Computed example of a mutant assay.
Amino acid sequence: MSQAFKDLFSGIGYFFRGLGWVARHPLQWLFGLIPALIVLVVYAAALGALAWNLGDIAGWLTPFADGWSEWPRDIMRVVAGIALFGASLFLAVLTFTALTLLVGDPFYENISEKVEESQGGAPPEPDVPLMTQIGRAVKDTVLLGLVALGFALVFFACGFLPVLGQTVVPVVAAFVSGYFLAGELTSVALERRGLLRKDRFALMRRNRGVVVGFGVATVVVFLIPLGAVLAMPGAVAGGTLLVRERLMADSLVTGGDDGSRVNG
């Protein structure tokens, strides 16, 4: 088996190891459900409203088909509806995690720290003022939302491609969303080590296979009804294990623009 496949399956393993960790620590799992449930209610309402009005929205998006005969027009609008809802799911999966981590920062910080302590000890918190940390978290969430929106528009447009739009495009979307989702889930442990967004993604690029494997496994489970809520604490735990054992495997990693050096 090639190294790429080994890394991919290794990344998947980290997700399930995270689920295993919270299964052994049920109070931490229950603790981590609270912010995910809050955000789920908002997202479920938004996606439910979209699904309810999908036919009307698909018709509004395809005015050029108004003059077509019934069968081609209906096919076009079904494809448009599938593409729109698929792009919306892609956007929801990415931003759900970012928003849940933002809302539940103290919850998931605590889970991540407990994971670190169970594996030999957590590194000391960086000496950064609380308001600075909050500002960075908000900025990162907004930037991720904009990136996710851009990709969602691309995947929505590609969804109109015959066959490819309903087969290849969803697979590519899963890999892209998995990569960015892994970036969010590892951010808690990486920020504890003083790494800013630019440095975190540079580290992820050097470990792309394991990162994508971890992220894709998370995406698949998050797409299951209630999967995002039930698996969120385990995903954070798995992301922390991934950081400790793979992303920070080097003894020293160059920090961000401030030139800091962070211990692994």
Score class of each variant (00 low, 15 high):
residue 23 A to R: 08
residue 29 W to P: 02
residue 195 L to N: 04
residue 183 G to C: 11
residue 25 H to A: 15
residue 192 R to F: 06
residue 148 A to V: 10
residue 78 V to F: 15
residue 166 Q to L: 15
residue 238 G to Y: 00
residue 243 V to T: 06
residue 91 L to Y: 06
residue 210 V to G: 00
residue 99 L to C: 00
residue 90 F to N: 03
residue 15 F to K: 05
residue 139 K to M: 15
residue 219 V to K: 04
residue 230 L to G: 08
residue 263 N to D: 10
residue 235 A to S: 11
residue 256 G to H: 09
residue 243 V to R: 01
residue 19 L to I: 09
residue 190 L to C: 12
residue 99 L to N: 05
residue 101 L to F: 10
residue 255 G to A: 08
residue 152 A to I: 14
residue 164 L to V: 11
residue 156 F to P: 00
residue 187 S to A: 14
residue 231 A to Y: 07
residue 158 C to L: 13
residue 168 V to A: 13
residue 124 P to S: 03
residue 36 A to K: 01
residue 115 V to Q: 04
residue 92 A to L: 12
residue 254 T to K: 12
residue 109 E to S: 11
residue 228 A to R: 00
residue 158 C to V: 07
residue 99 L to F: 09
residue 63 P to D: 12
residue 25 H to S: 07
residue 216 V to T: 13
residue 30 L to N: 01
residue 113 E to R: 07
residue 101 L to I: 14
residue 16 F to D: 07
residue 64 F to H: 14
residue 104 G to I: 09
residue 189 A to Y: 06
residue 111 I to M: 13
residue 153 L to E: 02
residue 131 M to D: 08
residue 27 L to F: 01
residue 67 G to A: 06
residue 46 A to F: 09
residue 104 G to E: 02
residue 172 V to Y: 12
residue 8 L to K: 00
residue 180 F to W: 13
residue 63 P to L: 07
residue 134 I to M: 14
residue 169 V to S: 04
residue 132 T to S: 05
residue 252 L to Y: 12
residue 230 L to F: 15
residue 122 A to M: 09
residue 233 P to Y: 05
residue 152 A to T: 08
residue 77 R to I: 07
residue 124 P to I: 02
residue 106 P to C: 00
residue 168 V to K: 09
residue 261 R to Y: 05
residue 187 S to K: 02
residue 234 G to M: 07
residue 163 V to E: 06
residue 243 V to P: 04
residue 46 A to H: 01
residue 130 L to P: 00
residue 59 G to Q: 02
residue 197 R to N: 06
residue 140 D to A: 10
residue 131 M to P: 05
residue 84 L to Y: 03
residue 176 V to K: 03
residue 185 L to E: 05
residue 263 N to M: 05
residue 250 D to A: 14
residue 191 E to T: 05
residue 153 L to A: 13
residue 112 S to R: 01
residue 169 V to R: 07
residue 109 E to L: 09
residue 63 P to K: 14
residue 136 R to V: 04
residue 25 H to N: 13
residue 126 P to D: 11
residue 149 L to A: 08
residue 106 P to G: 04
residue 43 Y to T: 12
residue 150 G to E: 02
residue 23 A to D: 08
residue 155 F to C: 01
residue 49 A to V: 10
residue 162 P to E: 08
residue 115 V to Y: 10
residue 104 G to K: 00
residue 169 V to K: 00
residue 89 L to C: 15
